[in-house]
């Protein structure tokens, strides 16, 4: 087996050009750190939108003058809908009381209003899987058909905007991750290409002595992998520093940032990602090795 020898060759080469390789490792680390930050952003946006179903509700405003029996029938029909998790009836009086509670010191707005202008309503919570534009639209349309319901309100614009923001953030982040990954591959590609040209004479001799493609490639692929792993470790160290500063220092000043979550799985994933990107860069740099 020549793998051990290939490792030795790779480590010798890495040590011989230690400063160039250190620069490559730091560049890879910077790239991977940027990828981590982007991933952190997308992760939190995703988490925030996943928390939305618990807060999201659809308001059904009822016609005036419905009897208790008619209201009960409407609630029963609403609950029959498979997407509905729970339905809460809010009587006219309760609605007015809640409004007064919200207005507090601005209750002069209601001065001169003798009759309760607010309609009775039903607040419905949808099942987690039903909180998406298509499903909410469908449920709203179905419920609106129920006799006695005057209006259905679910914040269509808010839901649309949220969906767009989430989509844009995901697309932007994915593009950034792809660009940064390509950057990391390019750094490894260039470093290995330089190493390959530097040892061109030696490689030619190896070929003439009967070396296979595997024997020639192995040290360079190992070099790429080692650069990637060290870049990943340095990137993980930077991410750890970021985590420490954000969650122990910044949150002390801005407590709201405590809602952010940092996926700790990122730390071990970075060296692995570095390894794969490093090997990828090296393989591309070596290309097809010809013997004649």
């Amino acid at each position: 087996m020549y793998l051990l020898y290939s490792f030795r060759l790779a480590l010798q080469s890495l040590w011989r050009e230690k400063w160039i390789n250190l620069l490559s490792v730091l560049t890879i680390a910077a790239g991977l750190f940027m990828i981590t930050l982007t991933f952190f952003l997308v992760y939190n946006i995703d988490l925030a939108t996943k928390r939305l179903p618990a807060r999201f509700s659809v308001m059904l405003y009822l016609n005036d003058g419905l009897s208790e029996q008619e209201t009960g029938s409407i609630i029963a029909q609403v609950k029959k809908n498979n997407a509905v998790e729970q339905a809460k009836y809010i009587a006219k009086d309760k609605a007015l009381q809640e409004l007064k509670g919200v207005l507090k010191n601005a209750d002069y707005i209601l001065e001169g209003v003798d009759e309760n202008p607010l309609p009775a309503s039903i607040e419905i919570k949808l099942k987690k899987e039903a909180v998406n534009i298509a499903s909410v639209k469908k449920v709203a349309a179905e419920i609106k058909k129920i006799k006695g319901i005057a209006e259905v309100e679910y914040g269509e614009q808010f839901l649309n905007s949220l969906h767009s923001i989430k989509g844009m953030a995901k697309a932007g982040s994915l593009s950034l991750i792809i660009i940064m990954s390509a950057g990391v591959i390019f750094v490894c590609y260039s470093t290995i290409k330089i190493a390959f040209y530097r040892r061109k004479e030696e490689i030619e001799t190896f070929k003439l002595l009967g070396a296979t493609r595997g024997f020639i490639r192995a040290p360079f692929v190992i070099e790429g992998g080692v650069l990637g792993i060290f870049g990943g470790i340095a990137g993980a160290a930077a991410a750890l520093a970021f985590y420490y500063v954000l969650f122990y220092k910044v949150t002390a000043t801005i407590p709201i940032l405590k809602i952010l979550v940092f996926p700790l799985e990122t730390f071990p994933a970075l060296p692995a990602a570095g390894l794969l990107l490093g090997i990828g860069g090296a393989v591309i740099a070596l290309g097809r090795i010809r013997f004649s």
Partner: peptide
């Protein structure tokens, strides 16, 4: 082309420029 290394192992060469 992939067989070339294996044939070369059967041929020892004393190169003019030593290599």
């Amino acid at each position: 082309e992939s067989s070339i290394p294996f044939l070369r192992r059967n041929i020892g060469v004393v190169f003019q420029d030593f290599r």
